[in-house]
Amino acid sequence: MNFLSIVKLTIPVMMGYIPLGMAFGLLLSKLLIPWYYALFMSMFIFAGSGQFLALTLFASQATILEIGIATFLLNLRHTFYGLSMISAFKDFSWKKHYLIFGLTDETFALLKTSDVPEANRERAYLLITALNQSYWIFGSVAGALLGNILPFNYEGIEFSLTALFVVLSIELYKKNRLHKPFFCSTYHWTFLAWCYFHLKKC
C-alpha cells in the first residue's frame, strides 16, 4: 500500500479527531492551562475520552492517585481491544510497542476493519497509527491556541464528552449482535442513578 492510499484510509478518523481534539483544546484553555500541555497530553496519553476525563478531574482538583485510577478504569476497555490484536501483531518487530501505545478506539476500529495486504503490513499499521495521532495532536493544539485568542462562550462545551459517550454506546450497541448486555447495564445504572439521586436529597 502506498502512502496516499493509507492517508485515504485514515480520513474518517481525521474527520473525528480534529473537531474532537479542538473541543479538548478549547476546554483545556478554558481551565487556563497553557497550550503546550495539550501537546504533551496528546503526545503521551493519547486517549480521547481519557484526556477529557483528566481535564474534568483537573478542574475539580482531584489528587494524582484519583486521576490514575479513573484513567485506568476508563481505558480498561483498551485491554479488550488488545486481546483481539495479539495474533495480528505477533510477528512484528519492537516497533509494535508504538502500535500498542496507539491502540485507541478509532485506531483499533480502523485496523480491524481495513484490508491491509500481508506484505508490508507492519509499515502500513505504523503509518495509520502515526497519522491518527498527528490528527489528534493537531486538533488539540489548534483548539488550545484558538481558545487563547478567540473570546468564546464556553457554556455547555463539557457536553461534548457526554455526547461522545452516548454516540459510542449507540455505535457499540448497533455493532453488537447480543443486545442483552446493553439492556442489563442500562437497567442497573438507571437504578443506581435513581438511588444516588434519592440519597442525595436526604
Binding site: 496519553i45 492517585l65 485491554t79 486481546l83
Partner: peptide, 23 residues
C-alpha cells in the same frame, strides 16, 4: 499537571499492554 500527565500516561499504556503480556 506534569505528575498527573505522567500517571495518566502510565495508566493508559498499562491498559493497552496488559493483554500482550498476559496472552
Amino acid at each position: 499537571l506534569i505528575g498527573a500527565i505522567i500517571v495518566a500516561t502510565v495508566a493508559t499504556y498499562t491498559t493497552r499492554i496488559i493483554p500482550f503480556l498476559l496472552f
